[in-house]
């Protein structure tokens, strides 16, 4: 197996202070291997974006470590971190507002090269044109225009060009296709998977849409109220979830096929406030399988099948590996 490009260890991120402190991320650990896409799913407010931002040191890390390419990022000075940041790029949900409205497309895409003082005007402009072509934007038609003249899907392509021009290694994609129509979403997903291979990228793909995450990810991590519940290979995790929360999420998802029907095991209520999380297992207030032990003891993430980890005292029946297809 390849080595991890990114290791996150016992990551804690706290917002606010003292009485109002909220642990948005409450001890999360995972690795992302070179060339891999790790999906991160969970309900709104569970801490997905905070995790992504903390990896890039855009959020103050309270404790724990983030190691990128063998280097600890949490102890770097802001100046040192800036020089590393070109290797770690982030893409967001709202591409139109994340592009500077007053700058032309070719300047927007060239900006990282200018910041990194890379090449001269001519080589930069050549690289920008090439990058725009790669994302399916005609540089001659688009270069002189402004973001507002483009649709959401086109702006997302331009954001991708901008993030790739500096040759990064890790992309953190936060809900980057969530606001797009399915037709455009499919275009962007396909584009991303082609570029990933071509540029040997490693991805953390954050989204709340379970089908999208399954499609793009090699492995998927499920998050609930600041902690990971389960982490495993996509197909295995979706076919045989081990954590009651994963199972509940999956049963709430719908398929565009009326013959499949609805599940009647959907979860009730909403996640409790992270200000005062339940003791023991954070999911226990909504878990159909909760027992006394769940209130007393925090379940740690442990491997129960090869490469498949779960944080639950009573994981769901694991299908023996031999009879999986």
């Amino acid at each position: 197996m390849t080595k991890p490009l990114l290791s996150v260890n016992n990551l804690v991120v706290t917002y606010g202070a003292r009485k109002h402190a909220v642990q948005a991320v409450a001890g999360v650990s995972f690795e992302i291997f070179e060339g891999e896409t790790l999906g991160l799913v969970g309900e709104s407010g569970c801490g997905k974006s905070t995790t992504g931002r903390a990896i890039l040191q855009l959020e103050k890390v309270t404790s724990g470590s983030v190691t990128f390419d063998g280097e600890e990022l949490t102890s770097l000075s802001p100046g040192e971190m800036r020089t590393r940041r070109r290797k770690l790029q982030m893409l967001f949900q709202d591409p139109i507002s994340s592009l500077n409205p007053r700058r032309k497309i070719k300047h927007i895409v060239a900006e990282p090269l200018i910041i990194w003082k890379e090449g001269d005007d001519e080589s930069r402009s050549h690289l920008v044109d090439q990058m725009l072509l790669e994302v399916g934007i005609d540089p001659h038609l688009a270069g002189e225009r402004y973001p507002r003249e483009f649709s959401g899907g086109q702006c997302q392509r331009i954001s991708i060009a901008r993030s790739l021009v500096a040759n990064p290694r890790l992309l953190v994609c936060d809900e980057m296709v969530s606001a797009l129509d399915v037709s455009v979403q499919a275009q962007i997903i396909n584009l991303l998977s082609d570029l990933k291979v071509k540029h040997n990228l490693t991805l953390l793909f954050i989204a709340h849409d379970l089908a999208v995450v399954k499609n793009v990810s090699d492995r998927v991590a499920v998050m609930y109220l600041g902690r990971l519940c389960e982490l495993g290979p996509s197909d295995d995790l979706y076919a045989h979830p081990l954590h009651p929360y994963t199972a509940a999420l999956l049963s709430a998802a719908v398929v565009p096929d009326p013959t499949v029907g609805l599940s009647h095991h959907t979860l009730e209520g909403e996640p409790p406030s992270p200000i005062n999380p339940p003791s023991g297992c954070r999911f226990r207030t909504r878990c159909p399988k909760a027992e006394a032990r769940c209130a007393e003891e925090v379940p740690e993430l442990r491997e129960v099948r090869p490469g498949h980890q779960v944080a639950c005292h009573f994981p769901l029946e694991a299908v023996p590996v031999s009879i999986q297809s």
Binding site: S151, G153, V182, S183, V184, Q185, A186, Q187, I189, N190, S193, D209, L210, A211, V212, K214, N215, V216, S217, D218, S234, D235, Y238, L250, A253, V255, P256, D257, V260
Partner: peptide, 23 residues
Amino acid sequence: GLLDSTPRIDAPSHTRLSSIEGR
């Protein structure tokens, strides 16, 4: 086209989506 571009939870991971080009 709409159906084929919709990712499905019951399809294997990395199933290539067929998208509708253009707008």
